[in-house]
């Protein structure tokens, strides 16, 4: 295919009443790229990911995922997206298998049993497969959340502060799964304010401040570390 962009945004703006969350964000991510977005709380990272995941409607601008317009065909876009935030969106009264089976049905996957078993093994929950998730620790919840995100084999992964509240074990597991996703040619967009975790596997990095991209570059380039250091110390880097 000619179009090799997994995510393409043009002048995305979002205002909540008088509050400006995004003020013209233009960004493109190639297929197979791993982009980390840095920025402090309220910079607009989460709003941007939520817009890309079709959860929030932009006030202005265009965004395409795998070449599909989020405004015109949101349902088709959602098939390609795996969205993970620190909330897992899992039903506490259902066990892991029932939770995944339900999401499988929503994604139109009637024969998901094998895949569910494999994913549960992958996240180390196969022995707890029939316990209601109510009793799960935060770490176990997050692991099941990871399985939910991977269930429909999304090609674009959007992760909003995924490291928040994870124990060391779950961080390890998340990193493994991200490496696998990259190896499979999936596109990853991740937001964080942890520089080390964010740069671990990234190929590109950008800093968002006050709803705009203020720095973008190669993740291996030491420039990003410098810019981030500056940004943390005094706000917008020059």
């Amino acid at each position: 295919m000619a179009n090799t962009l997994a995510l393409e945004s043009e002048d995305i703006r979002k205002t909540f009443g008088h509050f400006i969350a995004l003020s013209g964000l233009t960004l493109s991510v190639k297929r197979g790229e791993f982009l980390t977005l840095f920025g402090r709380n309220g910079a607009g990272k989460t709003t941007f990911l939520k817009i890309a995941a079709t959860l929030v409607r932009p006030t202005h601008g265009k965004l395409r995922i795998e070449g599909i317009d989020i405004h015109q065909e949101p349902e088709r876009v959602r098939r390609h997206i795996g969205f993970l935030s620190h909330n897992t969106y899992l039903y506490r009264d259902l066990n892991p298998v029932e939770n995944l089976r339900f999401f499988g049905r929503l994604y139109g996957m009637p024969d998901s049993e094998d895949r569910i078993q494999k994913l549960l093994e992958r996240v180390g929950l196969e022995r707890r497969a029939s316990d209601p998730t109510r009793a799960f620790s935060r770490g176990l919840h997050q692991r099941l959340g990871l399985a939910r995100v991977m269930l429909h084999d999304p090609s674009v992964m959007l992760l909003d502060e995924p490291y928040t509240g994870l124990d060391a074990n779950a961080v390890e597991m998340l990193n493994q799964m991200l490496d696998e996703a990259v190896a499979q040619g999936k596109t990853v967009v991740l937001t964080t304010h942890d520089l080390e975790q964010g740069l671990r596997a990234a190929t590109r990095a950008a800093i968002i401040d006050r709803g705009k991209i203020v720095f973008a570059g190669d993740a291996k380039d030491p420039g990003i570390r410098e810019a981030y250091g500056q940004y943390v110390r005094m706000g917008v880097p020059r």
Binding site: L55, R79, N87, Y89, L90, Y91, L106, G108
Partner: peptide
């Protein structure tokens, strides 16, 4: 049931 643990967001992310 849907707002507990933000499950409604999970529904909104699904392709329907």
């Amino acid at each position: 049931m849907e707002t507990d643990n933000d499950c409604l967001q999970g529904l909104l992310l699904a392709p329907l």
